[in-house]
Amino acid sequence: MTLTHLQRLEAESIHIMREVAAEADNPVMLYSVGKDSAVMLHLAMKAFHPSVPPFPLLHVDTRWKFREMYAFRDRMVRELGLDLLVHINPDGVEKDINPFTHGSAIHTDIMKTEALKQALNHYGFDVAFGGARRDEEKSRAKERVFSFRTAQHRWDPKNQRPELWKLFNTRKLPGESIRVFPLSNWTELDIWQYIHLENIPIVPLYYAAMRPVVERNGTLIMVDDDRMPLNPGETPMLRSVRFRTLGCYPLTGAVESTADTLPAIIQEMLLTRTSERQGRVIDHDSAASMEKKKQEGYF
């Protein structure tokens, strides 16, 4: 009997999660509601069955996610019987930080990077699971599965612990923490195939439907609620669109599509020559920008 690549990836992810459950003092799983989070959560349900995962989920909310994401998140937590913690940066709320007035860089820094640090400090989490994959971006390719952060949440790419065999060294000093990436070795195609094979629920925004959008700088932005200021002469148009990644709706570009089933989505992805993160406005800076963001504490 030969295990398939998806079976091996699944086994590796489960192994990583159990290792954290056994060795961490106070672990948490970051849940961003997207497809990678959906796979990560599904794997956690498998890893600890018949127990529920022995850690809560944490959603670092910016207040600007799609409405369907909030509805989906609450449904999943209810159906699976899990604990969900939601953290919104109160300083950001007070200053009314938003992507329109402050731009994507400041919004992301305050509502995501800072908010994440706040939440980890507040609850005293020492290990946090994240759904990042090494195929997403160059600096991720060299990041360990168990990625250490100083007490200031900084990542030092030159001082990473070697990871041999299936052995992970989880020891740390007080104040230090670890980001753990159980999906490190999955690719975007693996994720989609696994969702298909395992019938994993995902936010409906991944499927094409008629949605109100406006076009800005060549990017289709969905008008998800009435907080979105329209430019003079701009009117939302109904178009058949879907999303390849999900984030804050004003920062997430839609693609025109009619793919409304999983095989159709996978087919479209395979035939389209554009990689996943192009839909994310924050990645359009220089090649080293993600590496820099990570050193500053971005997941």
Binding site: T2, L3, T4, H5, L6, R8, L9, L189, Q193, H196, L197, P263, A264, I266, Q267, L270, L271
Partner: peptide, 16 residues
């Protein structure tokens, strides 16, 4: 393009 279901079937059974 022609048969995505069949394609997926093939790729679900490959090794690592």
């Amino acid at each position: 393009a022609s048969d995505i279901e069949q394609y997926l079937h093939v790729h679900q059974h490959k090794g690592l």
